[in-house]
């Protein structure tokens, strides 16, 4: 179901086409046995907590078979999805994803204000902004605006960070007359 195959040639090998359904079949089977083993058994005369998740997994399995059938009819025909896929800048993409993952522990560890300034700055840099004043002004003014709204007006207890970062965050709040 991925499009690289479509680009590669008109008749991609069947395994490439069927990769999606096969993945979901395997996922469903493993999931079913995991659910069966890990969820508390049902009390007598009741459906129990395991019924619904197992039903969902059976649904996935059946849908995967249906998908396989849909794709099966397409094998050997050149009119695959074609052209819908955009060329992506893989390096940029991977770095941005990495940044999105890294910022999560950072928010808890250094606190929301510092993490956000750093995040906006590095994200803009990755997205192509290079001027220092754009990077710093956008991230600092933006973050100030956000914490003012969310901490001062909405009373949202955004993470303040661990160790001395908590004190820094509190100091920033005091400096901005938030607290």
């Amino acid at each position: 179901m991925s499009s690289p195959s479509a680009r590669a040639g008109a008749h991609p090998p069947w395994i490439k086409i069927m990769a999606g359904p096969i993945f979901f079949l395997a996922f469903g089977l493993i999931g079913y046995f995991y659910a069966d083993g890990s969820i508390d058994p049902a009390p007598p005369g009741q459906l129990g907590a395991g019924f619904w998740p197992k039903m969902c997994i059976i649904g996935i399995l059946m849908a995967a078979v249906l998908k396989a059938a849909e794709l099966f009819r397409c094998i050997g025909k050149a009119e695959a999805e074609g052209g819908a896929c955009k060329e992506m800048d893989t390096r940029k993409l991977v770095l941005m994803m990495l940044l999105i993952v890294v910022v999560v522990p950072a928010i808890s560890f250094v606190g929301f204000p510092i993490a956000t300034v750093l995040f906006i700055g590095s994200f803009l840099w990755l997205a192509g902004a290079r001027k220092l004043w754009v990077l710093s002004l956008t991230s600092i003014i933006g973050t100030t605006f956000l914490i003012y709204i969310f901490v001062k007006v909405v009373y949202l207890p955004l993470p303040k960070g661990d160790f001395f970062f908590e004190d820094i965050t509190l100091a920033i709040y005091r400096a901005l007359f938030i607290m």
Partner: peptide, 23 residues
């Protein structure tokens, strides 16, 4: 400036309970 604020804030914190909002 940051260091100054930090020093001021920690000194301020230890004064009395409660000195800031309680979540």
């Amino acid at each position: 400036v940051l260091a100054l604020m930090l020093g001021a804030s920690t000194a301020f914190c230890q004064e009395k309970y409660p000195s800031r909002p309680i979540d």
